[in-house]
């Protein structure tokens, strides 16, 4: 806003009135932010330094909760964190590449594009509980669809969610199925359609191959969209909870026990509200640092067009 540079542009009565009215209109958000976001964040920071069970009074602990987590006293902390990192790396990389490929396919001049777009998108709309139930059945070891299909090719499928080794890959598979065709793909598609056709035309005249055009035109032009998708993808993957909670409940023997499940059980099963708050803050800092790194390094790989 250029006007903001003039020091006291809002000091006249009409402008003051306008400003006042503006605050009034945004006040629902301000109140909501204070009550349901900022307040709870401060509360959670305080609680994270205490031992607190519902109904009692918080008992000051200082950094003990954090020490308990990082020192390995709570084995499940590092254990669930690394498992979550593994899940996030797999789903963000495979998911982003998959969504981009799906968007490229849908961006071709072929018949039935709208049909395929709808078909690809449907899994992302399935409620997570239904998703978990549906896939429990599809991955059923004996008569499930997946193992039956593998059997047709002479492959004996694993026990999937009931197997300690395969449970985590199962959840990655389900997340990809539900995630590839979702909002991320639609955003890529819109990004691809925003690339000026002239760029491709002149590149083709210069004799650039398909792959050259993809790497030298398409990728740079949609890099801001890639950043956006990766940023939200990382946050989403780190927050994985409902799918694991319903499909495997963290099992078998902790094979799918993710960080947020640990947070949930600490808070709502063991009612260690103080410790759970510490876990929440560690989680927040991890997300914050990861987002910060991505945004800070983005000027090296994201191309912004200046018009």
């Amino acid at each position: 806003m250029a006007a903001a540079t003039a020091s006291s542009w809002w000091k006249s009565p009409t402008q003051r009135r306008e400003a006042l009215e503006g605050y009034l209109w945004i006040s629902p958000w301000v109140i909501g932010f204070l009550l349901f976001t900022l307040g709870p964040m401060i509360g959670s920071l305080y609680l994270s330094m205490t031992s607190y069970k519902i109904g009692g009074t918080p008992e000051w602990l200082g950094f003990d909760n954090y020490i308990r987590a990082f020192s390995g006293q709570d084995k499940l902390f590092w254990d669930s964190l690394w498992r979550t990192v593994y899940f996030a790396v797999a789903t963000v990389i495979l998911g982003t590449v998959g969504s981009l490929l799906a968007a490229i396919l849908l961006n071709q001049n072929v018949r039935g594009r709208n049909f395929f777009r709808a078909l690809f998108y449907l899994p992302s709309l399935t409620p997570v509980v239904a998703l978990a139930i549906l896939w429990q059945w599809l991955l059923q070891p004996q008569v499930g669809f997946v193992n039956y299909t593998l059997y047709q090719f002479g492959i004996e499928g694993p026990g999937w969610m009931t197997s300690r080794q395969w449970a985590l890959p199962s959840l990655i598979l389900i997340s990809l199925w539900a995630g590839i065709g979702g909002g991320r793909m639609i955003i890529f598609l819109a990004g691809l359609q925003g690339v000026p056709i002239e760029l491709y035309e002149s590149a083709e005249l210069d004799g650039a191959s398909t792959l050259q055009r993809f790497f030298n035109i398409t990728l740079p032009m949609i890099s801001p969209v890639i950043l956006f998708n990766v940023l939200l993808g990382v946050i989403g993957s780190f927050s994985v909870f409902s799918l694991a909670y319903v499909a495997t409940d963290g099992g078998p023997s902790y094979a799918t026990y993710f960080y947020v499940l640990h947070l949930y059980y600490s808070a709502f099963t063991y009612f260690q509200m103080g410790y759970a708050s510490a876990l929440a803050w560690v989680f927040f800092l991890i997300i914050f640092v990861l987002s910060f790194i991505q945004i800070k390094t983005s000027d090296r790989w994201v191309y912004y067009e200046f018009s």
Partner: peptide, 22 residues
């Protein structure tokens, strides 16, 4: 600030929110 709350994971606020509603 409004936009930055998009990137705020709900896990950070869930415990105090629960206590507030309780």
């Amino acid at each position: 600030l409004v936009l930055s709350t998009l990137m705020l994971p709900w896990q950070v606020t869930v415990v105090p929110q629960f206590l507030l509603f309780r």
